[in-house]
Simulated assay, not measured.
Amino acid sequence: MDKTIRGQWLFGAIAAIVPWGVGMVGVSVVSGAMSPNLPSRNIVQTLSFRPLFEFDANSSVWDVCFSPDGRTLATAAAYSLELWGRDGTRLDSVSHSLPVRVVEYSRDSSRIAAALTTPDEAFEIDDVHKTVELYRVAGDRLQSQHTLVHGSWVEKLGFSDDGALLATLGRDRTLKLWNDRGVDVRTLSATDFAFGEEILVTGDEAGTVTVWRVENGDARSLISFDNGAPISSLALSPDGLAIATGDEAGTVRL
């Protein structure tokens, strides 16, 4: 298994990307221009990726995440959380007794949440060890802030837009909301979630979609509706005006 992390830089603008197999070494770009005075034509260009840097993480890399400000990169590499600069410089590293599975930045790039798991999913340990570690990023260093005990292995993380809440979604299909002091302020039944501007959308096994108002470090239910089937995934449009759901019956609804 290749355990190398690579930074890539793409030259040019892309209208459509067509991968050339699994190991993509280039992309075909097709763009069209139409004018009342000119016939329609296709312009085909071949662009290439140039490696900016690469480094050996010495283990399987389970997750990578750019900070929203684009300055740093966080990696979940087996038993450590690593912080890297855009030039490939290792800025900081924190070791854990369990592998780091998922990593997520807050919207202002000031905090990182890292969910832990076991090397073998069949291996069980006490619920008290099923945690999410919360760090503050200060001067390109990781400062431990809180240990959040979810009670189940966490598979998805997300910060609210204002950073006042962190959502942790566990394999037990519970969603916990934590305030910036590391306090569990609300526990919900959910199979997926999405944050928007001042709102949170959740979907659950019963097929219910709920929209929550996020304010003052808490969430208040605004409206719920029936999706018609258990929800397996959902997404919120960037403008916050549309919700897409995917359900176990194989239907996508908008």
Rank of each mutant, 00 (worst) to 15 (best):
M1G: 13
D2M: 12
D2R: 13
I5Q: 04
F11Q: 15
F11Y: 03
A16D: 15
P19T: 10
W20A: 14
W20P: 05
G23F: 11
M24S: 12
V25T: 15
V27P: 02
V30A: 14
P36S: 01
N37T: 01
N37E: 00
N37K: 04
R41V: 04
N42D: 14
V44T: 13
Q45G: 05
T46K: 15
S48G: 12
S48Y: 11
P51L: 13
F55G: 07
W62N: 14
W62Q: 12
D63R: 10
C65D: 02
F66C: 01
S67N: 09
P68T: 09
D69S: 09
T75Q: 06
T75A: 15
A77C: 08
L81M: 11
L81Q: 08
L83F: 13
L83K: 15
R86I: 03
D92V: 10
S93Y: 10
V94M: 13
S95P: 15
H96I: 04
S97Y: 15
P99M: 02
V100P: 04
R101Q: 15
V103R: 04
E104K: 02
D108W: 10
S110T: 13
R111C: 00
I112G: 04
T118E: 04
D120G: 10
F123K: 07
E124W: 10
D126Y: 13
D126F: 12
D127A: 04
H129I: 12
L134R: 06
R136N: 02
V137D: 11
G139Q: 06
R141H: 08
L142V: 08
Q143S: 06
S144A: 13
Q145W: 11
H146G: 03
H146C: 06
H146I: 03
V149S: 09
H150Q: 05
H150L: 06
V154G: 11
E155I: 05
S160T: 00
D162I: 10
A167H: 01
T168M: 00
T168H: 03
L169K: 01
L169T: 00
L169P: 02
G170Q: 03
R171Q: 11
T174A: 08
N179A: 04
N179Q: 01
G182W: 04
R186C: 08
L188Y: 04
L188N: 03
A190L: 10
T191W: 07
F193D: 00
G196A: 07
T202R: 07
E205D: 09
G207P: 06
T208S: 09
V211D: 09
E215N: 00
G217H: 06
S221D: 07
L222I: 07
F225Q: 02
D226A: 15
D226S: 10
A229H: 11
A229Q: 12
A235G: 15
S237H: 14
P238A: 02
D239R: 12
G240Q: 07
G240M: 05
A242L: 13
A242K: 13
I243M: 09
I243P: 07
D247A: 01
E248H: 01
E248L: 05
T251A: 13
V252K: 05
R253C: 03
R253N: 14
R253G: 14
